[in-house]
Design a protein around this nucleic acid. Sequence first.
DNA 1: ATAGTGTAAACAATCGATTGTTCAAGTCAA
DNA 2: TTGACTTGAACAATCGATTGTTTACACTAT
Lengths: 344, 344
Amino acid sequence: MACRTRSTAGAAVAAGPTRLREVAIASGVDVSTASRILNNDPNQSARPETRERVLEVARRLNYRRNAAALALRTTKTNALAILVPNLSNVAYAEVTEGARLRAADEGYVLFVVSGTPSELLSSLTGRIDGVMLAASRTDVRFGPEVGALMPTVLLNRHVASPINSIIIDDGAGIEALVEHLVELGHADIGHIAGPANTDTGARRLTAFKSALRARGLPVRASWIAVGEYSEEGGYDATLRVISARKRPTALIASTVATAIGVLAALRDNGIDVPGDISVASYDDVPLASFVSPPLTAVRMPLREMGARAVEVLLNLIDGLPVENEVLQAPPVLNQRASTAPPRA
Amino acid sequence: MACRTRSTAGAAVAAGPTRLREVAIASGVDVSTASRILNNDPNQSARPETRERVLEVARRLNYRRNAAALALRTTKTNALAILVPNLSNVAYAEVTEGARLRAADEGYVLFVVSGTPSELLSSLTGRIDGVMLAASRTDVRFGPEVGALMPTVLLNRHVASPINSIIIDDGAGIEALVEHLVELGHADIGHIAGPANTDTGARRLTAFKSALRARGLPVRASWIAVGEYSEEGGYDATLRVISARKRPTALIASTVATAIGVLAALRDNGIDVPGDISVASYDDVPLASFVSPPLTAVRMPLREMGARAVEVLLNLIDGLPVENEVLQAPPVLNQRASTAPPRA
DNA sequence: ATAGTGTAAACAATCGATTGTTCAAGTCAA
DNA sequence: TTGACTTGAACAATCGATTGTTTACACTAT
């Protein structure tokens, strides 16, 4: 099975996977006939016995249509790609899973790819029908090839260009967190923000400030610190915030990883959570329930974003009109032990 | 740019990306000439002015060779895939990153794909030159199509079949953990094992038992509990272990996620770590440093495994002889606050 | 002047499928 | 019996590249 031979013009040569021609020959029909039978072509009927014979032979020879040939002929690959900056970010895993399932529903394979956008896009031409670019640093410039080579959808990142985008309503998530803390009685709230050169980091920070102002609460520069989207980033940023003369009574972290760094920094400095400072996180993942103390967090519709992005991308591929959109699925706040009323 | 037209036989039709033919026509040469120039074909020289002209036109028209056509003609896609059960597992992210970098070095794109192996493999024929299958449950049977359709390497999973595999020396990692605990003075060591239907889970458990026996330490069934590879799995399994009449003084968790569940379960039951029970984890990730208490963990050569798998796969593709191997890169034990000598 | 040589570029086959068109053999009605 | 239809299957073009083989031309040496 692993080492068949193929006879061509009398000679036997080493062979790759079975080709349609071999199925056709083995069943005594033309390749066009075999093709139509295997694809259930409605424009042409075949005698039942012929059909049976072809299907049986195809099965026996373990025939799989060659995707490259199919793509070349039909100019369709039935594959999509999602390009992510890195795979270790759980949020991307969620988005990707949502996209994968939706793509599968529509008969597409989803390839996850990571690396430099411009380089990758070049090597993807002809391999996929469209691509989703997951949020990355806004200082990663998109060259003219982005969007021009194939249907493209930006995920959680807006760009002033004709490229379409799907964005989560970060504002609603931040709003839910602030509202929760205010209800608990907090007035002095700080923010461990994501990098300024990310669209999400900037949006969440803006939303944070608006939410405080809308409630007449103080927005203090020393209570806002920027850190990379990682445990370490959250840790370092927190150290800066707690060195302020007056400390906030609550902190909102921009991701769960950040929040875990926040918790570690507070713990290392003998600051009790939630006794001294409450901590709440944007985004939610199972891990959040298991850290100490369990994290109050707001679950955002990441899978939904992935799924919706696929829908939009498929519309784009079909030449249908699409509009940029902000996903309106409401965030869900899961209160856990990391938030409590401020000390009296 | 996004909406060019292409003239064919006098008619103007909507067009996709630029084709080689268009470059050739625009520069007044044959497609074969254009192809040779763009590929630096050493078998044929071109007048410098012709070369310049073709390159310039190709650049101006933003030409990208069509991967499908190339693949069809050359029967090479220059793409590999790694198939993982899910993307939220950080260990796979590491393996994948190692594979991606190595693949890029060799001029290959790496696609990460998740889902059901047998279904995916079918839809991958002709899209990639080879595939790596990351460890999954051993009760996911591999059909005959696995390994027969294209060069295949199994990652961290052995199967009694002609399919090649690369495996990490789990035994060495477990050994390092046991040795560390024994050095601290522990004799009563338990294991929160991975699912029995995973190759890794089984291997680590076996190694754990051998390590204890080799030291004449007791292997108590009640100190060994199996749980899914997740925080919750670790949590539940730990509850079972601590309900034993006599408790171990140390626990080895099969992954970091598991270990975090272990810590949560011990905390929820008022058991101090490392005061009452020490906890150490197989595998290591940045997160491990930031939980409470920071986890002693053994870093395994995950990236190296990914890189090595690509090397082996490429050899397989080139028809070179390859052998199954166990990666011998030594594990690195990072001692942190979760382990300490047992209470006197 | 002519054969020989080398260079630059065109010609043409091919990869493995799909699909519009043509063809051959029955079937049926008049 | 024959012409019109239907049905089942073959024929052939095509997708966009690569690559082995010619061709056309200019130049050189005899």
